[in-house]
Design a binder for these strands. Structure first.
Lengths: 368, 368
DNA sequence: CGGCAAAGCCAAAACGTTTTACTGCTCTGG
DNA sequence: CCAGAGCAGTAAAACGTTTTGGCTTTGCCG
């Protein structure tokens, strides 16, 4: 077998991390803090009110003398004053923090989306908590509540079903056709698959095999619906004998490898394969290599996502790029808009993102 | 050129996100909250004190009647009570939160370490903030302070220099030989490079080229020192003509590609190449491929890290695995220990993690 | 010279917990 | 019958801000 995969992931599966925090008073001396508003105002001979106003409201609104403002600001800078986030949050009832739920942070998909989220958030001095639920039902249920108890002002669910009705705005990236108060950011699946299938069609392919996603992946169904529609538009036959489904939660290319072996074992002829994602496409190429099937001479392969590895495998992978980083950015700025407007209801239920097609070397004209 | 790389990263480079939050009172209605301690205790006909005690200290310590405890717990569950994290944090002066600084969250290296950190943290109901500094000096300076102002109880710096002396415990993963109050989690570089070089030695290689890391990468120097020592132990000659350095901050395999082209252009013969990391090794293979040099027949290539792509490139990459996930776990539990003990000073300055060697198909016996 | 507006600031309440320091009651032994 | 000890809880302060609703002083106009 071509892929040497060694498990790098070593999370302790047995222990359940979600339990009431018991006996927390044991150790842990609080660390020394910086100066507070009180010290600062005492030193200035002013009231905390005044200092607070200068530092927050940029002053003028409350008729503070300009040179007082200057004095305050200088002292604050000098003592390195940073307001205590807890006290501020408690009073204002705002946290400037959101929560992000992902299946597993160490996978490229989630990490890339997070990069985009961060781009948008840090502009506004928002921070974010990340939690990985690993498709475990107990975590899927517990995490939203834990996030809420930490006063997040909104939640982004990346490829994650939203089970309960939360009391903050929620934006889903590639999420299920979920609860109706959730705004969705998703790729335009129909355009995406049409790009791929038309490419194959133009190269002369007519017998095309498909790898469907795992049942728990939220994109599986919509993508498949799109494929069916695109096929009928292009008058391509969709042969059930040429469809296999990914199975298991193993990360990486393993499931695609197994699925392709199953497909090849059926002995039905095909000239192209459209995989559910790049990871499975890479597994498919490996399986075909093992079976003596040459890519792209005998079979063309198309992936989906355009993960980093797509450019480095051999042959490099023709694929449909999902602009994950941009989707993260969009999700975050959308959520910020909802937070600012104070309403959980989105004006748009769903934002469609355009995919781009990336031609590399795993596809070729059909032989003969 | 073999690698088709398209820039996916689209962060707005110009804008500086770090600025005092001005005029925050504009919009943003606070959302409705759940029940508070007061409502709960009123409903039970008890004082907030009693309810708080039952829910926190697991009761017995304060002589609360067992059935009162039961009543309280049931009511809390029924009303879905979650204590307000701000109020609690304000009073207790604890946040149960740490900060993690990484160069860029969307890269596999950081994401994998974060996975390990999360494993360890969520056991203890700690949450974490992530910030990506992208090697920008302004962010490197601002982020630690922003994290502190959010009352993190500790900081993990992943491949990130720690400039200032912070007032919380800090653990560095692969960090610079940094400030002396910082505990370091790092791989045993000498063992790591010895594994790789001995492998090459045993295959008969004597003329070995090296790709050094970028100057800003914290591992570059220690790794190189280790290489020098290992070479002298193995009586291998270290020819300056066979050493190139990665340049630029471009992610992925591009820098390795460029460096290898430079190396080949020198026209000095070598039979093996030890790259700084897998990404550059992948670039190196591509450059050699373009130059008509066959890997591993003409030149053997060894990478470092064992990122996911290492198993899927062609030929699959022989490499030294850095157990990143485990390093993250270790860093987090170490930090938790420091937090609990209340001292910033670590009992051990540095924890060494053992690498493992992964033999794949990019290395072979030197051609007779 | 009295009244009134504006300028410049402040006292105290509020946010929702945890923690410190008590209180009232019921036994029980002397 | 009373002192003291246990029991089951409560009142109020504290955490560090922001916000509400003032208050005093000065200058100017009539």
């Amino acid at each position: 077998m071509a892929l040497t995969k060694a498990s790098q992931c070593s999370l302790p599966e047995g222990a359940t991390p979600i339990s009431k925090r018991a006996k927390q008073g044991e150790g842990s001396v609080p660390h020394r803090r910086g100066v507070g508003l009180k010290e600062l105002s005492a030193h200035l001979g002013l009231s905390p009110t005044t200092v607070s106003r200068v530092l927050n409201h940029a002053g003028g609104a409350f008729r503070i003398a300009p040179d007082t403002q200057k004095r305050v600001r200088e002292a604050a800078a000098h003592f390195n004053y940073e307001p205590n986030a807890f006290a501020r949050g408690l009073r204002q009832r705002r946290s400037f923090t959101i929560g992000v739920m992902v299946p597993e942070i160490s996978e490229g998909y989630a990490a890339t989306v997070l990069g985009g989220i961060e781009d948008a958030l840090l502009q506004e001095e928002f921070f974010y908590f990340v939690v990985s639920h690993r498709h475990r039902p107990d975590l899927l249920e517990a995490y939203p509540r834990l996030l809420l108890s930490r006063s997040v002002e909104g939640i982004i669910a990346v490829d994650t079903p939203v089970l309960e009705d939360l009391r903050v705005p929620v934006v889903a990236v590639s999420g299920h056709s979920s609860r109706n108060h959730v705004a969705r950011i998703e790729i335009d699946h129909l355009t995406a698959v049409t790009l791929a299938l038309r490419h194959l069609y133009d190269l002369g392919h007519r017998r095309i095999a498909f790898i469907k996603g795992q049942t728990f992946s939220s994109d599986t169904r919509v993508r498949w619906d799109a494929i069916r529609r695109a096929c009928s538009t292009l008058r391509l036959r969709l042969d059930p004998e040429l469809v296999v489904q990914l199975e298991g939660t193993a990360p990486g290319s393993e499931p695609g490898f197994a699925a392709t072996q199953k497909l090849l074992a059926r002995g039905v002829r095909f000239t192209a394969l459209f995989a559910f994602n790049d990871a499975s496409a890479i597994g498919a190429i490996a399986a075909m290599h093992d079976a003596g099937v040459h890519v792209p001479r005998d079979v063309s392969v198309i992936g989906f996502d355009d993960i980093a590895a797509a450019a480095t495998v051999h042959p490099s992978l023709t694929t449909v790029r999902q602009p994950l980083r941009q989707m993260g950015q969009t999700a975050a700025s959308h959520l910020l808009k909802l937070i600012r407007s104070g309403s959980r209801e989105a004006d748009q239920r769903s934002v469609q993102i355009s995919p781009t097609f990336v031609k590399r070397h795993s596809t070729a004209k059909v032989a003969g």
